[in-house]
């Protein structure tokens, strides 16, 4: 494995070297080696003679967790910029106020011209309200800014993957489900939790606990066995557990959020009388 990595690195360096020497006379078409070819380019922000390309595994900016990949193309040299530093801030322009959303830092990936981060949109845009993505990036010591409106939509299946709520501790939280390819099996299941400090600051919340109770409302609201509640994993900075799905179809994952003192901040138990928790995610497959 390591040998292959070295080989690839060497190959990559050789290619970059060759392209550097060649690019004055004979620029190599850049699409050919697009490392993000498998992803969808959701947006190309044109500013400062750069094209800042945003890629995602999904087909659109969706409410909930979005993992985004960024490349900056120098329009003049038709090449991608390596070693830039990027920061971002998505802002929702509502009719009466503005707010941001939970987001990560933008970091470099193994490929020096590809950067990545995630952003958790709480709500979709509409005719009067919209999301704007503010980007600040530095290339060779020079800082640029760019701003672009982006269209954030509800997921095509309409299923709930993010929840914004006020806990019993009078704190507003954002809880988002990590993307999952559900199977009839015991699935790895994770979520990320942030609290809203102010309109623009959403720090991650650590060491709480999220209990899960998957149910099928379409079939007598039955559950599944051997689920594992989500606990905080400091390495991945996520809450991780196990989700058992005994059949395909529509599942409602009823949740309860507990703080580090095991006090319930949000959500209720599912009982005969209470069909569902007020805090939940949805999965359909």
């Amino acid at each position: 494995m390591k040998t292959i990595k070295y080989l690839l690195a060497t190959l990559f360096l050789t290619v970059s070297f060759i392209s550097c020497t060649d690019d004055t006379d004979d620029p190599i078409p850049i699409e050919e080696e697009n490392p993000l070819a498998e992803y969808t380019m959701l947006k190309a922000v044109k500013a400062n003679n750069h094209s800042i390309e945003l890629y995602s595994e999904q087909e659109q900016f969706t409410i909930g967790y979005n993992e985004l990949f960024i490349r900056i193309k120098d329009e003049a040299s038709e090449s991608y910029v390596s070693d830039a530093t990027i920061s971002w801030n998505p802002v929702m322009h509502m009719t009466e106020m503005m707010h941001s959303c939970p987001k990560s830092e933008v970091t470099k990936t193994e490929n020096a011209s590809v950067y990545k981060g995630f952003s958790i949109f709480q709500m979709p845009g509409n005719a009067d309200e919209y999301w704007e993505l503010n980007l600040e990036y530095t290339i060779n010591g020079q800082t640029y800014n760019a701003t672009e409106r982006i269209e954030v939509k509800a997921p095509s299946d309409g299923k709930k993957r993010v929840s914004v709520f006020m806990g019993t501790d009078e704190t507003r939280y954002v809880l988002a489900m990590m993307p999952i390819k559900p199977e009839v099996a015991v699935n790895d299941f994770s979520a990320v939790l942030f609290k809203m400090e102010n309109m623009m600051t959403f720090p991650a919340v650590e060491d709480y606990k999220i209990t899960i109770d998957p149910r099928m409302p379409g079939m007598g609201n039955h559950g599944s066995p051997n689920n594992e509640d989500l606990t905080y994993d400091s390495a991945s900075k996520m809450y991780s557990g196990k989700l058992s799905l005994t059949m395909t179809g529509y599942w409602k994952i009823n949740l309860k959020l507990l703080n580090d003192g095991d006090e319930v901040l949000k959500g209720e138990d599912v009982t005969e009388e209470n069909e569902s928790s007020s805090l939940f995610f949805e999965i359909e497959f």
């Binding site: 379409g218 079939m219 059949m247 395909t248 179809g249 529509y250 497959f285």
Partner: peptide, 17 residues
């Protein structure tokens, strides 16, 4: 196998072996 058809037509079929 067992395929169950939800009463809500917008929901997908439930399938298990």
């Amino acid at each position: 196998e067992m395929t169950m058809y939800p009463n809500n037509p917008n929901e997908r079929e439930m399938f298990m072996l």
